[in-house]
Simulated scan of single mutants.
Amino acid sequence: MSDSPENDSIDYGNLMHDALRLLIRNVLTDVSENGLPGDHHFFITFDTNHPDARLADWLNDRYPGEMTVVVQHWFENLDVGDDGFSITLNFGDQPEPLFIPWDSLVTFVDPSVEFGLRFEHHSDDDDDHDPDPENDEIPEAPMEENAEDDTPHEAEVVSLDAFRK
């Protein structure tokens, strides 16, 4: 057993994080094997500054903090792995391969079924965190860049009003 009191509790936040990332991994694995069913499509926002994220220099220059990609009509080479997923997407008729690590995810939204997750960046001081998820809305893609933040993510369900037609 641990010697310090801070290690004597269950870290539900990180456990939930891992479970939600596993959910996204399972969804993308199914899509890689069977394609997108029905009207499903995804808005996936990730931290372009993550050390393991791989994207073309021109995309990184254009989206220096966060980038939202859409997985819908045209994509190929979707390969889901332990550390993240790779996918080739079309940017203005230019196919570009990307690698998106699981722990770089900021949001995952499937507006066709009003499902969304947000992995919040926050410091250890939770006094500034707004506990009301009704106040958390995802801006429309592409998302504005936020300042680089290396703090852990916390997952929560988000409002999908910004994606409704």
Rank of each mutant, 00 (worst) to 15 (best):
S32H: 08
E66V: 11
H50W: 05
E66W: 03
M143K: 09
E156W: 11
L23F: 08
P111C: 07
N90C: 12
D125W: 05
Q72H: 12
H121Q: 10
L117H: 02
R164S: 03
P101C: 07
T45C: 10
H41K: 12
E156R: 13
S112G: 02
E134G: 01
L28C: 02
E96D: 12
G65V: 09
H50C: 09
E154D: 08
M1C: 02
N146G: 04
I10G: 00
Y63D: 08
R25D: 01
E6N: 07
G84C: 07
P152S: 10
D126G: 00
T107N: 05
D93Q: 15
K165W: 11
I100Y: 10
R54K: 15
D57F: 10
D125L: 03
D18W: 01
V109C: 05
D125N: 14
V157I: 14
H121G: 00
E145G: 13
N135Q: 08
V106M: 09
F99L: 12
N26A: 04
N26S: 08
I24E: 07
V157N: 01
L89E: 03
S123Y: 09
I24Y: 05
G84W: 11
P95I: 13
D18A: 10
P97D: 14
D126L: 11
E144H: 01
D18C: 02
R118A: 06
N26I: 01
A19K: 11
S104L: 03
W58H: 09
E148T: 10
R62N: 08
S86A: 15
P95T: 13
L160H: 02
D39R: 09
A147W: 07
S112M: 04
G35R: 13
T48L: 00
F46M: 02
E33H: 15
L105S: 01
S2F: 05
L160V: 12
S112K: 03
S4T: 15
L105C: 01
M67Q: 14
E137A: 02
M67Y: 06
D136M: 08
D150R: 12
P131E: 05
N60D: 06
H129S: 05
S2N: 04
P64V: 11
L160C: 03
D93M: 14
P152D: 10
D57Y: 04
L89D: 03
V106D: 04
H41D: 02
L78Y: 06
V69I: 15
S159H: 12
M143H: 12
D79P: 00
G84T: 11
F119D: 00
I87F: 05
R54N: 06
F43S: 02
V80F: 08
N146L: 12
P111K: 08
Q94M: 13
A155M: 10
R164A: 03
